[in-house]
């Protein structure tokens, strides 16, 4: 069977020490048995390594930062689409998702397919709404609260006790052991990601994660649970192992029955000593370790492309446990000329 030719645009090429999911997603796509894929990279910064990884990314275009707004983004994508004729677009960066979700119908009209959650699905899993989310879908969630000023930190001692977790709207989380530390974390995170700041009850246990994909009709098309076996000093995964965890799989299945999630996602959970699972966060896209799923026998990014193209996709029924991933970094040699071209022309 000959492979189908298709062009896919992918963002999140920041394959640095705490990598974005773009390059892992691309690797998964390149492994596809069904498609022969031309990859168009979408980058925000000239230093995103993916721009220079020509064995994986065929051509990269700079796109405006999310804060420039949807009008700017669509103008740029229209230009890129004219050059490349994109079939499917996979955004991988949390902060850009709002814009892409809002633009999904416009993109569809232009002939670019996506497979993204609806805005309501996206919004109801926001960190600051997670308690309500947990109640609605029957998942335990550590108590959390959003605050908008450091003046509110004093009251937290009674409500939460220390330690507690201070989290940003999009990224960043710090464990604070005292009001002073909470104050410092508030200032640091809010200066970067704005308000509100989310305060979360500290839940001791081991972290278990699950990468999955939903078909938008309530079915879990694929899912692989993982535990980080080794983390970097920044708390990011260094190595991880695929787990057999039927409880976690059921949590994911039930959640999808309820919210009919459409697209890739990651569940970040804490499993306590009493084997209770607490939901810490739902990422509305594939995680950077999604390639472990491919290694374990489930190609989620490929499934996402097929769903985006409107195909009927059967759920994966199994995966191999005992597969692990180990991250490594690699010093890529780049000619300055390439940096010059992406910096001045915005495409490479």
């Amino acid at each position: 069977m000959s492979k189908r030719k298709i062009t896919i645009a992918v963002s999140g090429l920041n394959n640095i020490d705490s990598p974005g999911p773009g390059i892992p997603v691309i690797r998964a796509l390149k492994d596809s048995e069904l498609f022969e894929i031309r990859i168009i990279g979408l980058s925000y910064d000239t230093m995103e390594p993916g721009i220079y990884m020509h064995d994986l990314v065929d051509k990269t275009y700079q796109i405006p930062l999310p804060s420039a707004g949807q009008q700017s983004l669509i103008t740029r994508l229209t230009y890129i689409h004219q050059q490349e004729k994109i079939d499917v677009l996979i955004p991988n960066f949390d902060a850009e998702l709002f814009n892409f979700i809002k633009l999904q119908d416009t993109l569809k009209k232009m002939g670019i397919d996506t497979f993204l959650p609806a805005l309501e699905q996206f919004e109801e899993r926001q960190k600051w709404a997670l308690n309500t989310f947990g109640e609605k879908y029957g998942i335990k969630v550590p108590k959390s609260k959003q605050i908008n000023s450091t003046a509110e930190i004093h009251a937290l001692t009674h409500e939460f006790g220390y330690p507690l977790v201070v989290k940003g709207k999009f990224y960043d989380a710090t464990v604070a052991y005292s009001p002073d530390q909470a104050m410092a974390a508030f200032n640091k995170i809010s200066s970067k990601w704005g308000l509100p700041i989310i305060i979360q009850q500290f839940t001791p246990g081991i972290e278990v994660n699950l990468t999955g994909i939903g078909d938008g009709k309530g079915n879990l098309i694929g899912a692989v649970p993982m535990r980080k076996t080794y983390i970097t000093d920044k708390g990011k995964a260094w190595a991880g192992i695929a787990l057999e965890d039927e409880t976690l799989m059921n949590i994911a299945r039930n959640m999808l029955k309820g919210n009919k999630w459409r697209g890739g996602f990651e569940l970040e959970m804490i499993k306590t000593d009493k084997r209770e699972y607490y939901l810490i966060e739902i990422n509305p896209r594939f995680p950077a370790w999604v390639y472990l799923a491919v290694g374990a026998g489930q190609n989620h990014p490929e499934a996402l492309v097929r769903l985006a193209l409107g195909e009927d996709v059967k759920p994966y029924e199994s995966y191999e446990t005992g597969k692990m991933f180990i991250r490594y970094s690699y010093d890529k040699i780049v000619d300055l000329k390439e940096f010059e071209i992406i910096s001045t022309l915005g495409e490479l």
């Binding site: 300055l336 940096f339 010059e340 071209i341 910096s343 001045t344 022309l345």
Partner: peptide, 17 residues
């Protein structure tokens, strides 16, 4: 100096447009 408007200082690695 490059015709694209890219300026590079090899002495300290700075680049400009």
């Amino acid at each position: 100096l490059s015709d694209t408007g890219f300026v590079f200082n090899p002495g300290n690695g700075d680049s400009f447009s």
